Simulated assay, not measured.
Amino acid sequence: MEGAVKKPIKVSIKDLATYPEVYIDSMPITNHLRQWRHTLLNVKCVSLKSILDKVIIDAPSPKDLSRYYLEFIASDNYTIVFSWNEVFNSPTGKHIFLLTEKDARKINEQSDRISMIVSTDFATGRRYLKGLKYIIIKKAD
């Protein structure tokens, strides 16, 4: 994580193994029309919030946090944006996960490496990001 933070942190695949895992039996992936595309089976994942809780945003006051947003950028430059409030001040934040295993394959055996998903989205494919490379925290103008 980099950007508007007091100290950037780097989380590797090896680091993810140190966080508590959540197990999800199956997760359907749907497109923007909510049409089924495929299903992820035997998903093990880490709550993104458990990682972000270690990040200190460089904000002058807590009141300013509502002006911050997080960009999640994949290796192919696909980008997903969340507001600070969406991650830290709503139920959505509790359902953003980094996948450590899916379809009985560990993260280091997968071509898309670190993937991110929001398990409570209606159209899950919209925020199913494969190959997460960076998380950048920025302040809106």
Results as ranks from 00 to 15, higher is better:
I51R: 12
V22F: 04
I80S: 11
R34D: 15
H38Q: 11
I80K: 05
H38R: 09
L41D: 14
P8M: 08
N108D: 13
I29R: 08
I137P: 00
F82R: 00
Y23P: 06
A17G: 03
A123Y: 04
T30I: 02
G93C: 13
F97T: 04
V118F: 05
D76V: 10
E86G: 02
S12M: 07
I96T: 11
V87C: 09
T18P: 11
P62L: 07
V118M: 03
D58W: 04
L41R: 14
D141Q: 06
E101D: 07
N89L: 07
S90H: 05
V11R: 03
S75N: 14
A123M: 09
S75H: 10
M116S: 01
P8E: 09
S115H: 08
S50M: 04
N31I: 14
A17F: 02
Y69M: 09
H38F: 13
P60A: 01
P91W: 05
I107S: 02
N108Q: 08
I56L: 15
I135Y: 03
T18A: 15
R127I: 02
K10R: 13
V81W: 13
S119T: 15
I56R: 08
W36V: 06
R37S: 03
F97M: 10
T39C: 08
F122M: 15
S75G: 13
M116K: 00
K130G: 14
T18W: 06
A104S: 14
E71L: 02
T30C: 10
I117A: 07
S119F: 11
N77G: 08
D53W: 01
E86Q: 04
N77D: 07
K49R: 14
R105L: 09
V5N: 12
A104R: 11
E2L: 10
H38Y: 11
H95S: 12
V46N: 02
I57Q: 13
L41H: 10
M27T: 13
I80L: 05
E109K: 10
N31A: 12
E71A: 03
D121P: 01
T92N: 11
R34G: 05
V46E: 07
L41V: 12
R126Q: 13
T120A: 06
M116T: 03
R67F: 04
P20I: 01
V81F: 14
V118P: 00
Q35W: 05
E71Q: 02
I9M: 12
P8C: 05
D112P: 11
M1P: 13
R37T: 09
S26C: 03
T79P: 04
K10N: 12
P91A: 05
G125N: 10
I135T: 03
A17P: 04
S47Y: 13
R126H: 06
I9G: 11
K94G: 09
Y134R: 02
T79N: 06
S50Q: 05
N31R: 11
S119D: 06
L41P: 03
A123H: 02
K14E: 15
D76M: 06
G3R: 09
P20Y: 03
A123T: 03
L52C: 14
K10T: 14
V81L: 14
N89Y: 15
K139H: 10
K130W: 10
S50D: 15
M116V: 01
T100H: 07
D112R: 09
I114D: 01
P20N: 09
L48P: 05
F88L: 10
I96Q: 08
A140E: 13
Q110P: 15
R34F: 06
L48F: 15
L132W: 00
Y134D: 00
I137H: 03
Q35M: 08
